[in-house]
Design a protein around this nucleic acid. Structure first.
Lengths: 117, 117
DNA sequence: CCCGATCGTTACGGGTCCGTATCATTATCG
DNA sequence: CGATAATGATACGGACCCGTAACGATCGGG
């Protein structure tokens, strides 16, 4: 069941959501941070630094730094993997789940407003 | 004619597009830069620094800096308004129009892939 | 055991962006 | 004219992120 949307509608949707994200005053997430956050919350665990780096096509320090920032914002946490202590497992948080849910609602609401463009 | 989309679908769409934007290697635009770019290309001219600042709810230096960057990327240009030389008019470019069109296609393609989530 | 491989982190130099304050230029109006 | 207002740009100190390279900790095979 594909989602029906035309490029002109997609662009209006993209603009409206970004306008809201800018206007709400909270710190904007970069594209990389957004991709990481949504991957952790939408894909099945476990999530590791290396795995995220591979999925995004970026280097590991990029992931480490993004996790520092997202962790500081309370949107996710890190935990040592006790089975293989070299690994770090990225875990979800309540605040992160709420933020992701808000984003989903935001996109959905703006989609509703967009008529035949 | 509202666009039908559920939050879970919206989130998967948001993730997929951001993954592509990260992976394509080109410099990521910030949320502010994206909002400015799409406003210039979707809303009727003329566009001024002050007008954009008001629409985004940010200060004028934020717009000036974003225009510096977007201009350096060739996505838009500035021109003095000859009728009131205090104003600067932001204009579209061919490269910018192509980039916006690509974004619209990107969102549309991923929307097609998203089934009943 | 020990050596190599793997994991995530840190260090470094450079670039970009932030918010606030200030600036030069131009227009407006008494 | 001259004073005031408005516009966009610039200066500044601080924060964040980048890519590359190196690092310490941990695992695993000979």
């Amino acid at each position: 069941m594909p989602l029906e949307i035309r490029p002109s509608q997609a662009l209006r949707l993209w603009r409206q959501v970004h306008l809201d994200l800018v206007r709400d005053g909270e710190p904007d997430l970069s594209a990389r941070q957004t991709a990481i956050l949504l991957t952790v919350y939408l894909e099945l665990p476990p999530h590791t630094v290396r795995g995220l780096a591979k999925q995004l096509g970026v280097t590991k320090p990029v992931i480490t730094r993004a996790l520092d920032t997202l962790g500081k914002l309370g949107l996710l946490t890190r935990k040592r993997d006790e089975e293989d202590r070299r690994n770090v497992v990225i875990q979800r948080t309540v605040a992160g789940a709420l933020a992701v849910e808000r984003l989903g609602d935001l996109v959905t609401e703006h989609a509703k407003e967009i008529g035949a463009g």
